[in-house]
Nucleic acid binder design. Structure first.
Lengths: 338, 338
DNA sequence: TTGAAAGCGCTAACAA
DNA sequence: TTGTTAGCGCTTTCAA
């Protein structure tokens, strides 16, 4: 059925060791026999068996991307960046969706170990110092900080800075009463963005009003409800910084329903720059995370440690967030015109 | 380094064949020794080597999903459906983005063969009867029809019916001058949707006006430009059926910019029901493709043929499209109110 | 430059 | 119920 190295050895009248050498371009094969072998191999439609090779070489040239949910608009670009980079470097990539479930994550990690992937990119389902990561054998790099775990390299984004930039933009655009509507309180990135928010307020001598800081979930509904509560209680802000774009979209929806004029009387900024944000009908001002780059860099870093052999030190790569001004905030220059 | 079956055999004082049997739950091992073996294995932190196993068993329990671009909003749900189903059935899944490039597709297919995946789900980059698919060894199921290739099973959607339903909805909603703004002319699904459109017009005795049928690309800009051309030439329709949602979004944008009142004076319907379509700010009426189901069913079908051993006949599974009425078309009932 | 042979970790006859 | 052994397809010493 499957043509093997032996079949072609027989046909070419050489030992199969020689065939292996020829096929792998190893030195020490007469040019003549090498050509013969290559020709025979081609004629017979030989397909190398990566499984057999993996068994002896002890690496598989396959990586894995373990993320919560490819359906979440934050992840496709990361996946694409990762896959493009992997492909370029000669690796295939397993896609695993944990569905934000630590048990499923554990299970995948186990399977991936059995399948002997060379390395893993992991965006943990939760950042609560999960113990199942601790004694992991395979090189792994994280897409999200896990507090208290220093063992793994990671690609991160400077959330504090992102939060700062976002809030600064709102302030400079002239908004006065700026709320922070965040996601899960226990999420480190949420906490960091909030910290950036506070930092910016402080810097501009704006008192921090705790009634304007709301935690919820990283969901559109959560953004909607949070703003609604603020409005209903007569505590309407004139701008909100959403913990991520999905939240900001919910805020936007609520603001629109309440007839708030955007961006004139009400400003909204998000975080992530998911594809939705740039739709003509949305035009959400936001803080861009370089998602494609994150995936790409993660793979590149991973492969570098694979090649390094000896235990390389853990490295943390911090990427810079970027302000994308669109239509849900007043433009700074416009403010200056006044 | 890696603990193997032999290590645990030595420790447990049995032959490694027995260990293999015990580990795999095969019959013919005394309960007592089995327990011992399992215990020793656990204590030693044994991790089965799927590569070695794959070599002898000749299957790897891994599948591949080869699609044009995970970043295209049409695919994440398919991928998720596929991955969920695969995971449930005990398979891992490679993700491959061809970037709509047939050469890259070819290359991936080759790699996947070398890695000995058990089966492949392929959404071809192009549907132009690509010859490189013909003599493929691995079971494969297609997510898109390729004209003239009957060798592969497929999961398809009834595009003609979808086009029919879409157009019928427009007609019943009272729109009179209905344009079809499609994607690539050579695309079979585009052609089929157009056919459905014509069928509906015929059924309602509306003459087909070729000046109202436009082919372009499956891009937002294409939808925008196509409508603009119609408007600029004084041939403005009062409704358009977009070849897919992305096109429809472009149409929507253009219509909005031209101050057309939607849905009162101008109706828009798309095709696919990508996530964007249901955003509060968009609310695009469309024809839903059951994307998650497509991925799921594709995997299930694939695994079924893998299990079947003997060459099963090729089967084509046709899924039904579904009308999703949102805010870019008049509601039928509203029309009846008049 | 080539061949013989061991071995990667495992499963599955076949014997005992 | 258990052990012996061949072999999956390949790479890589070690000899020739």
């Amino acid at each position: 059925m499957q043509v093997t190295i032996k079949d072609i050895a027989k046909k070419a009248g050489v030992s199969y060791a020689t065939v292996s050498r020829a096929l792998n371009g190893r030195s020490g094969v007469k040019e003549e026999t090498k050509e013969l072998i290559l020709e025979v191999a081609k004629k017979m439609g030989y397909q190398p068996n990566a499984i057999a090779r993996g068994l002896v070489l002890k690496h598989t040239h396959t990586l894995a991307l373990v993320i919560p949910d490819i359906t979440n608009p934050f992840f496709p670009e990361i996946a694409r960046g990762a896959e493009d980079a992997a492909s370029l470097l000669g690796y295939s990539i397993f896609l695993c969706n944990t569905n934000w479930d630590t048990d499923k994550e554990k299970l995948y990690l186990k399977t991936l170990q059995e399948k002997r992937v060379d390395g893993i990119i992991l965006h943990p389902a939760h950042n609560d110092g999960e113990t199942h990561l601790y004694d992991f054998q395979i090189p792994m790099i994280l897409l999200n900080k896990i507090p208290g775990i220093a063992e793994y390299s990671s690609i991160e984004i400077d959330n504090v800075r992102g939060g700062f930039i976002a809030t600064k933009h709102l302030i400079e655009a002239g908004y006065k009463k700026i709320a922070f509507i965040g996601g899960t309180e226990s999420s480190p990135s949420n906490a960091e963005r909030k910290e950036g928010y506070k930092l910016a307020l402080k810097k501009y001598n704006i008192p921090i009003d705790e009634s304007l800081i709301i935690n919820g979930k990283f969901k559109s509904e959560s953004g909607y409800e949070s703003l609604k509560k603020l409005i209903d209680s007569g505590n309407t802000p004139d701008a909100v910084f959403g913990g991520n774009d999905v939240i900001a979209l919910g805020v936007l929806h609520c603001a629109q329903e309440h007839g708030l004029r955007i961006p004139e009387d009400f400003g909204i900024i998000g975080f992530d720059d998911i594809p939705y944000a740039s739709l003509p009908q949305i035009q959400l001002t936001t803080i861009e995370q370089p998602k494609y780059q994150m995936g790409k860099r993660a793979i590149e870093l991973l492969v570098r440690v694979l090649k390094a052999e000896e235990d390389s030190e853990v490295i943390r790569m911090i990427l810079e967030p970027k302000l994308k001004i669109r239509k849900t905030t007043r433009n700074v220059s416009r403010k200056l015109d006044k």
